[in-house]
Nucleic acid binder design. Structure first.
Length: 199
DNA sequence: CTCGGGATGCGT
DNA sequence: CGCATCCCGAGG
């Protein structure tokens, strides 16, 4: 089931934690990629100095100020893209950075025999571990064209819950966010969530 | 306009 | 640890 608006319209830290184990779908010309999310980080508004929105409402951060469930995609270090999901109600610039995932071939859809056959050929990504926000975006072909995309409606990019069976009781670890040493006391917030054996 | 720096990845 | 590579946001 595709995640609905109300999933994203909640406390950002809760959303970051609950996105672990969910399935990120990306529709391309000739295939649909499904990746299980294994690592996220919460970025919590204007007060959070690690959050881009701490600079206020700018052309870049505009999407974060908008309604929940939209993609916030930006370019970092001149060469990598980062994919975030906007959380909370409009006017609260918060988001969850998706830092890692793993290709979940068993969850490709539609799971027809014909489809599986073509997958077995070479119709899927070589990388299975998408450990790192830049690598994840590269593999899923996420760039700024998808900035602002509505994950609750888009046919190109969305997130699904694991379903009844897939909701496993795996241990979710927690730690400091990566690469935010400049953010004063906010650098020590334990707003990174990840699965131990992945990424 | 210039300029400093960045929610990274990869090779040394 | 260095570096690629370019957009963004701030300041003049």
């Amino acid at each position: 089931m595709r995640l609905k608006r109300n999933f994203f319209n909640r406390n950002t830290i809760v959303v970051a934690k609950e996105l672990i184990g969910k399935y990120l779908y990306r529709r391309l010309r000739d295939k649909i990629i499904c990746a299980r999310i294994t690592e996220t980080e919460a970025y919590c508004g204007q007060k959070d100095l690690a959050c881009h929105a701490s600079k206020g409402l700018t052309p870049r951060t505009k999407v974060m100020f908008g309604p929940p469930g939209h993609a916030y995609v930006y370019l970092i270090y001149g060469m990598h893209h980062c994919f975030n999901v906007v959380t909370r109600e409009e006017g609260y610039p918060e988001a969850v950075l998706v830092r890692g995932a793993e290709i979940a071939t068993s969850n490709w859809r539609p799971a027809t025999r014909k489809n599986k056959k073509s997958l077995a050929a070479n119709n899927y990504s070589l990388l299975t571990k998408l450990n790192g926000p830049g690598k994840l975006c590269r593999e899923l072909k996420i760039d700024r064209q998808l900035n602002g995309a509505d994950l609750c409606r888009s046919r190109e990019l969305w997130i699904e819950s694991a379903g009844q069976r897939g909701d496993k009781p795996e241990k979710i670890k927690r730690g400091k966010r990566i690469g935010v040493e400049y953010a004063g006391k906010w650098k020590d917030k334990l707003w990174r969530f990840y699965l131990q054996n992945v990424g």
